[in-house]
Design a protein around this nucleic acid. Structure first.
Length: 277
DNA sequence: AGATGTTTATACTCTT
DNA sequence: AAGAGTATAAACATCT
C-alpha cells in the first residue's frame, strides 16, 4: 500500500514506517515488533525489490518497490492476504525478472515520471491501485477491502470502537455501512481520510486519468490487482462469483476475531502479552 | 550507535 | 492433512 501510494512507486523503509503509522493507529505502538516484521517481509518476499539510491538521493537505506511482475499477486484489490506467493520466474518475460534489472527499470521509470511532471508543471496523477477507489466504475467497495477497513476508525457495529488494530493477519474490523464510501469522484481515500482518518499527512491525489499506464510505463495490468484496473468491485478474498456484479454478500466466513468474545479486538490488550491468535 | 537488511526459526491461520 | 501464507522473534551483518 505504501509503495503504491507513492509517486515514484518506491519508498525508503522509513517512509513505509511512516505511512503505516500515519494510517493505522495500532502500529504506533510496539514498533519494534512490526517493523522487524516489515523488514523481514521486504527482504524475504520476491515481490519486493530493493532499489539503490542514486548519488543525488542521499539518505539511509535503499528504496523499496514492487516487482513489476507481481501484478497477479493479490485477489481483486484486497491486500489482506495474497493469493499466492510471488516468485520470480525465469520464464516471466513481461517484465524484468532479476531484481537488479527491475530496480534499474523502476529507477528509469521514476525518472521519466518526474521528468514528465516537471515538464507539465502539473501533478502526475496517482495511479496507485489501493489508494483511490476512484477510477472505479462502481461506487461500491466491498466492506472487506482495505480502504474500507481502515476508513472507519475501527468502529464495531455495536458501537465498540477500537483505536488499535489487531495484528496484521487479523485486521478485519467489521462494519455495516455498505453505502457510505466510495462514490466515484472526490471520495475514495481522500474522502475517507479527510472525514475519518486521523492523519492526512500524505494527501492522496484522486485523479484517475493515468490509470491505463502502469508505474513501469507500460500499459500492462496494474500492480497487484489480479489484472484488474483496480478493484472495480473489491470482493472478498474468496469471491463468490454470483455475488460479484451486485452487492456482494458478506463473506460466509467471518473471521473469529470479529466476535465480541475475541480478545484480539480488545484495545486493552497488554502490548507485551503474547496473545494467542 | 542506530538504522537498515538478511536469514533462520517457530507458531499460527487459511486454502486446497 | 499438507502446504502456503503470515506474524513475530532473534541473531547477525552492513551501512550511514
Amino acid at each position: 500500500m505504501a509503495i503504491q501510494s507513492s509517486q515514484e512507486k518506491m519508498l525508503p523503509l522509513s517512509e513505509i514506517y511512516k505511512f503505516i503509522m500515519d494510517r493505522f493507529p495500532y502500529y504506533r505502538e510496539n514498533t519494534q515488533r512490526w517493523q522487524n516484521s516489515l523488514r523481514h517481509n521486504l527482504s524475504f518476499n520476491d515481490c519486493f525489490i530493493k532499489i539503490p539510491r542514486r548519488p543525488d538521493q542521499p539518505g539511509k537505506g535503499s528504496f523499496w518497490a514492487l516487482h513489476p511482475s507481481c501484478g497477479d499477486m493479490f485477489e481483486n484489490g484486497s491486500f489482506l492476504r495474497r493469493r499466492k506467493r510471488f516468485k520470480v520466474m525465469k520464464s516471466d518475460h513481461l517484465a524484468p525478472t532479476k531484481p537488479s534489472d527491475a530496480a534499474q527499470y523502476l529507477q528509469q521509470q521514476a525518472k521519466l515520471r518526474l521528468s514528465a511532471l516537471a515538464a507539465s508543471g502539473t501533478h502526475l496523477p496517482q495511479m496507485s491501485t489501493y489508494n483511490l477507489g476512484v477510477s472505479q466504475t462502481s461506487s461500491f467497495k466491498h466492506p472487506f477491502a482495505i480502504e474500507n477497513i481502515i476508513a472507519r476508525e475501527y468502529k464495531m457495529p455495536g458501537g465498540l470502537a477500537f483505536s488499535t488494530m489487531p495484528p496484521m493477519s487479523a485486521a478485519y474490523p467489521l462494519h455495516n455501512q455498505l453505502t457510505t464510501v466510495g462514490s466515484p469522484i472526490g471520495t475514495g481515500w481522500h474522502h475517507m481520510y479527510s472525514s475519518s482518518m486521523i492523519d492526512t499527512t500524505t494527501p492522496i491525489s484522486m485523479a484517475n486519468s493515468d490509470y491505463s499506464v502502469s508505474a513501469y510505463g507500460m500499459p500492462i495490468k496494474p500492480l497487484c490487482h489480479g489484472g484488474q484496473t483496480l478493484p472495480a468491485i473489491p470482493v472478498p478474498i474468496k469471491p463468490t462469483p454470483a455475488a460479484m456484479p451486485t452487492l456482494p454478500a458478506l463473506p460466509t466466513h467471518i473471521p473469529a476475531i470479529l466476535s465480541n468474545s475475541s480478545p484480539s479486538l480488545s484495545p486493552n490488550i497488554s502490548p507485551n502479552s503474547n496473545q494467542p491468535k
